[in-house]
């Protein structure tokens, strides 16, 4: 029987994977900006803006926002635990941080709805 991992262990992997994804995005972000700014590039930010306002890019932005929230809220929970707080209540703390994240993603979806439906 495979070992039943605790919620804290799953949160640890979520933290690690989201951190690596964000680091990957940082380099993607720099590459895209460099490509536009290169002498051979378009230099036309308005054209780029047109592209990134397509719904698919808005969805990608929302996914990025969600990944960042997982990392940020989980990180804050860990800092709280480093002060010795919410340790016995860890399972609730993880649930709470993810619930707060879900609400923030929901607000972002509602805010960006006009872009999503065109």
């Amino acid at each position: 029987m495979p070992h039943k991992h605790t919620r804290g262990y799953k949160a640890f992997w979520a933290h690690r994977v989201s951190g690596l994804l964000i680091l990957g995005y940082l380099y993607l972000h720099l590459c895209l900006l460099s490509a536009v700014l290169l002498p051979s590039g378009s230099h036309d930010f308005n054209a780029v803006a047109k592209v990134v306002e397509q719904p698919i890019f808005i969805v990608a932005d929302l996914v990025l926002f969600a990944i960042i929230l997982v990392h940020v809220l989980n990180g804050l929970r860990l800092i709280v635990a480093d002060f010795g707080w919410m340790i016995r209540e860890n399972r609730f703390a993880i649930w709470l941080s993810m619930a707060v994240g879900a609400i923030m993603v929901l607000i972002a979806v509602l805010t960006l709805m006009p872009h999503l439906v065109g």
């Binding site: 991992h5 605790t6 804290g8 640890f12 635990a81 002060f83 010795g84 340790i87 016995r88 860890n90």
Partner: peptide
């Protein structure tokens, strides 16, 4: 890594993670 798995399994309800944080 503050998984707190030790806290969840301890039969004596000890929180070693609290001790480690301290």
């Amino acid at each position: 890594h503050t998984h707190m798995s030790c806290v969840e399994v301890c039969p004596k309800n000890i929180a070693p993670t609290r001790a480690i944080a301290h």
